[in-house]
Amino acid sequence: MLNNIGIPGLLLIAVVVLVLFGRGKVSSLMGEVGKGITAFKKGVNDGDSEIEAEKQAAQAAADTKIVHGTETAPLVTPAASEEKKEV
C-alpha cells in the first residue's frame, strides 16, 4: 500500500499537514524531533565512552596485578546461618 507513494504523494501529505497544523506548530515539532535525535546520539556516544573507560580500567588493573605479581583474596562474607539469632 505504501510502496506507491512517490514525491507527489509526499508533497501532498506535507501540504495537508501544514494546512491542518500551521507552520508554527510543524516547525516547533520538527525542532523538538531534532533535539530528541541529538540527545539520543549524545546518550549513545556517552554510553560507548563509559564502556570503553571500564574496559581500560579493567585492563589497567589486570596489568598492575601482572606487574606486581600480587593477587587479591576473595571477599568472604558470613554465612546466612550465622546471622544474629533472636532469643
Rank of each mutant, 00 (worst) to 15 (best):
M1N: 11
M1Y: 10
M1V: 14
L2Q: 11
L2T: 12
N4F: 15
N4D: 15
N4K: 15
I5R: 13
I5W: 14
G6C: 12
G6Q: 15
I7W: 14
P8M: 06
P8Q: 03
P8N: 09
G9V: 11
L10W: 14
L10P: 02
L10T: 12
L11N: 04
I13Y: 13
A14I: 07
A14G: 08
V15L: 13
V16Y: 11
V16P: 00
V16C: 01
V17R: 14
V17E: 12
V17L: 15
V17C: 13
L18E: 07
V19N: 08
V19A: 06
V19W: 03
V19T: 06
L20R: 09
L20I: 02
L20Y: 04
L20W: 07
F21V: 13
F21P: 00
F21R: 07
F21N: 11
F21G: 03
F21T: 10
G22N: 12
R23A: 02
G24M: 06
G24Y: 08
G24I: 10
G24R: 15
G24V: 10
K25N: 13
V26G: 14
S27D: 14
S27Y: 10
S28I: 08
S28K: 09
L29E: 13
L29K: 03
L29S: 13
M30Y: 00
E32Q: 11
E32A: 10
E32S: 12
V33E: 10
V33H: 00
V33K: 05
K35A: 12
I37L: 12
A39I: 09
F40H: 05
F40C: 03
K41C: 09
K42H: 05
V44P: 00
D46R: 10
D46V: 06
G47W: 06
G47E: 05
G47Y: 07
G47C: 05
G47S: 04
D48K: 09
D48L: 08
D48M: 05
D48C: 01
S49W: 06
I51P: 00
I51E: 03
A53S: 01
A53M: 05
A53K: 09
A53P: 02
E54K: 08
E54N: 04
E54H: 05
K55G: 07
K55T: 04
Q56H: 02
A57V: 04
A57C: 01
A57L: 06
A57Y: 02
A58I: 02
Q59A: 08
Q59D: 05
Q59P: 00
Q59N: 02
A60H: 00
A60L: 01
A60K: 03
A61Y: 04
A61T: 05
A62R: 14
D63I: 08
K65L: 10
V67N: 09
H68L: 10
G69E: 02
T70I: 14
T70E: 02
E71T: 12
E71L: 11
E71Q: 11
T72A: 08
T72S: 06
A73E: 08
A73C: 02
P74N: 13
P74Y: 02
P74H: 03
L75F: 11
L75Q: 09
V76G: 01
V76F: 03
V76A: 11
V76Q: 15
T77P: 00
P78S: 08
A79N: 05
A79P: 00
A80G: 00
E82A: 14
E82L: 10
E82G: 14
E83H: 07
K84M: 10
K84F: 10
K85E: 15
K85F: 07
E86A: 13
V87T: 11
